[in-house]
Design a protein around this nucleic acid. Structure first.
Lengths: 147, 147
DNA sequence: CTTTCTGCAAACCCTTTGCAGAGAA
DNA sequence: TTCTCTGCAAAGGGTTTGCAGAAAG
């Protein structure tokens, strides 16, 4: 995981260099907060985290910084059900999501059998697959336990 | 298909009856347009269709009527990628979607192997599945052909 | 110095709702 | 007559952007 973050930081540095983007105090704060927090965070939440360290950082800057990370393919923008977008660390391996409708917990899973079957189905229909969204909604083990 | 629509109309009539909802010219226009059009339509598009027959019908009425059909489980509200919601005829059998990123075409597919594997994966992780969203994005046969 | 960034506030886009008059039953 | 429905316009909720001053290089 630390490995993943190191890789992400490198990739981001390269991207910024190549695009003539500048390093700023705000960007550092935002990127650090995002990496520390880890995953599936909204802009509102991230802004709150960043403002704990510097209350002067504005929402628009957080918004634009996450767009930047997305362009750099260091972050990935997800839109679950309704409402706000959520950002997660762009992963090297593909994964899908399990979302608990009771507590909001979001887990990731990966299953090669599913992926393969999906590819097969698409091919048989004559389509060409670019990417997909596979989200499973239900109850996590803790919420099942809790009733 | 005509069979499906007849069934939907019956179900809707029953629901409206049971809820003391009234029949109005606007609702008839909207429901007819929705049934004729078929599937994956946005409120904007549906409003435009309805207004070709009666320009006085407002967007809010279309909005509320589709909410009504959704409550009656005659229509189903989908939110693909970004932007607006889309409505489709509520199907008796479950299906998932194929979305063409070039022309916007939306097709449906159903694969029992996928469904079964999905259930298995969820169960093994200790979760309880309620419903899911499985959307495949890519190119449809025509757009592959067209290059 | 020059060019990019930032924070603010306003603009947008779509969805949702309050209200007063219109229309079913 | 009564109670629901409609159209309008405004309010919400999240995302995006114009602008003038701040800061990086």
């Amino acid at each position: 995981m630390s490995e993943q973050i190191r890789h992400a930081r490198e990739r981001l540095a390269k991207y910024m260099e190549s695009q003539g983007k500048r390093n700023t105090r705000q960007r550092d704060l935002i990127v650090d907060a995002f990496f520390v927090q880890g995953g599936h965070i909204t802009l509102q939440e991230l802004t709150r985290l960043v403002q704990e360290r510097d209350s002067g950082v504005g929402f628009a800057t957080v918004y634009r910084t996450m767009k930047l990370l997305t362009e750099a393919e260091v972050a990935h923008e997800q839109r679950f059900g309704e409402g706000q977008a959520r950002y997660e660390l762009a992963d090297l391996e593909h994964h899908d999501h399990l979302i608990c409708e009771s507590c909001g917990r979001i887990d990731e899973f990966e299953d090669q059998v599913l992926e393969d079957r999906q590819s097969l189905v698409v091919r048989q229909l004559g389509w060409q697959l670019k990417h997909h969204r596979h989200e499973l909604y239900g109850l996590c083990p803790e919420c099942i336990e809790a009733g």
